[in-house]
Write a protein that binds this DNA or RNA. Structure first.
Lengths: 314, 314
DNA sequence: TGTTTTATATAAGATCAATTTATGATAACC
DNA sequence: GGTTATCATAAATTGATCTTATATAAAACA
């Protein structure tokens, strides 16, 4: 099995065969070791060799090294075969809440041994987290372009304007940006992809939005709007339930629909770990429609079952 | 400290310095490893290198190997410095009882970490135990010469004849072998050094001893003689107490005193382990007189204190 | 007892792996 | 924008390891 083990079979020639080398090579190796240690590990008697006491002691301990070497090989195999590994994934709170569960569950189903570390922040923060090697992949909007970051869009999400149910504009057939600019706006924080698109929209229309408040917390925004503190632009998916339950009204914008591209982002010209590669590959296979709440319905049960195995979402 | 550790310092050049090799050597090593594993362990960004997730995992496990390698070095050092090791020592029951305690105690005092395995048997059996590698050193009488065994005499013990205190010959001024040959003799077993000398003695005198019984057990012989079952030849040292206490009588042999050489025996042309070498060296330093019961008196206390540390006498 | 077989040691030459030297590319620093 | 620091690469060198061939010695056998 290993040099020592073979030699221990009280036969250098046999050891040589097992190691696919010649007998003099074994003799030389052992001689070298003995000289290096200034100790004798084998004694010869007749045509047999025996381990000395020192040899036995050294052998016993040396075995552990070979054990670990074998273990290391297993680890390398496991790394190749996605049996061990970590996927460090960045995303936004909103995506984590509305799109990620399905993606992660699908990934986890296919690679149940890979640990998943999910980090949240604004799209921009997550873009930088890639550059800082904090995350390897991010599911975010392109809040800012960066020459070293590759964005692969995989889903186009509609951004809508929400208002309190009793809002005067809610009854109108269409609302202009000019009208919206007068309303107090609960805006997503700096670095948000949605915010970027919204600001672009106002700028293009020559309007300046009346930003009442900024926050990264989508749930908080919904609460404020519901209480009548203002209106807000949010991804449709995130307010679906509240709209259906008539807790929030959707203001129909006069201008054409506003969309937000959700992308997988990762560093250009940088090696991707096997888990990261596998994750991106899975995203390629998932049809965008499956990501929405509609698609999730039938998969809810599965997700709940698989959730807490080695799925270290932190 | 080790290749990986150094490389982990996010700097191949630094690693190379620590390893006393050049930077391209480090690069080549890592490239080789990565290619062999079909994995990427380092990623470069700017002028720094970072461990990938896979690199971190492999590194964590590889450290254990280097830990063990360091431990192995310590073991080799300890073997050289007699910090660990086993002394496999053969001797006879009688010597174990009367001479060995002092020798072992002296050895143990000088090399407290060496374990001692004491095996007992007749002198001849112990001679063969050397040839079978069961023991490395033996403290025995030369019961039989052997071309491969080196005997180094270090003590000359007097052999005396003991008889029951009321034995008719006990009152005589001197007893001839002829007279002794008529007495029932409790003889030491085959392979005994004493037996060999006694038989030689009778043979030289043209007499045939009247052997009543053979046994290897010296204490048993003393019991039998005390009970009046016969006379026996034994090493003086072994019957000192009983003679002083007048439980046994000593028959004065007419012929010149009979002596038995106690030797250290070990294999010629065979490497001796450091513990065995150290033991023989200590025997060289001990004056024969110290070995007897007389010499032991003052050392009794010390022996008793030191006895049960890692002194595995089996 | 001598001959054959089996096993290790040794020496010289060949092979292969690892290292160095020299140089190029690239990003950070001033 | 030039300089510095760092890693990559290629070719040459070195050194270690292996092989081939042979010697030696003990066990097996006849």
């Amino acid at each position: 099995m290993n040099p020592f083990h073979a030699a221990k079979s009280q036969n250098f020639t046999q050891a040589a065969k097992e190691l696919f080398i010649t007998q003099p090579a074994v003799s030389a190796q052992i001689k070298g070791l003995e000289e290096a240690c200034n100790l004798v590990f084998f004694k010869k008697r007749g045509r047999r060799v025996y381990l000395t006491e020192e040899g036995k002691i050294l052998f016993k301990h040396a075995c552990k090294i070979f054990e670990y070497a074998r273990e290391l090989e297993n680890i390398v195999n496991d790394l190749q075969q996605l049996k061990i590994g970590v996927l460090r994934l960045g995303t936004t709170k909103t995506y984590a809440r509305y799109f990620m569960p399905f993606m992660i569950s699908t990934f986890h189903e296919k690679h149940p041994d890979i640990k998943i570390q999910l980090n949240e922040g604004s799209s921009l923060e997550m873009t930088y987290s890639l550059l800082e090697f904090k995350n390897e992949v991010a599911v975010i909007a392109k809040a800012e372009d960066h020459p070293e970051v590759q964005f692969i869009p995989f889903s186009r999400e509609e951004v809508i304007v929400i208002a309190p149910v009793n809002h005067p504009l809610a009854v109108k057939k269409s609302v202009s940006l000019q009208e919206l600019a007068r309303e107090p706006l609960i805006m997503k924080e700096a670095g948000s992809g949605t915010r970027k698109r919204v600001l672009e929209l106002f700028a293009k229309a020559g309007q300046t939005p009346n930003i009442l408040m900024e926050t990264g917390n989508t749930e908080f925004i919904k609460q404020l709007v519901q209480r009548g503190d203002g209106v807000a632009f949010l991804v449709k998916e995130a307010v679906l339930t509240e709209v259906q339950e008539k807790k929030l009204a959707v203001l129909p914008i006069r201008e054409k629909q506003l969309f937000l591209d959700v992308s997988v982002a990762y560093l250009k010209n940088q090696h991707l770990s096997p888990p990261a590669k596998a994750f991106i590959q899975i995203l390629d296979q998932i049809k965008p429609g499956d990501l929405t709440l509609k698609g999730i319905g039938s998969l809810m049960a599965k997700m709940l079952v698989n959730r807490n195995k080695n799925l270290n979402v932190s």
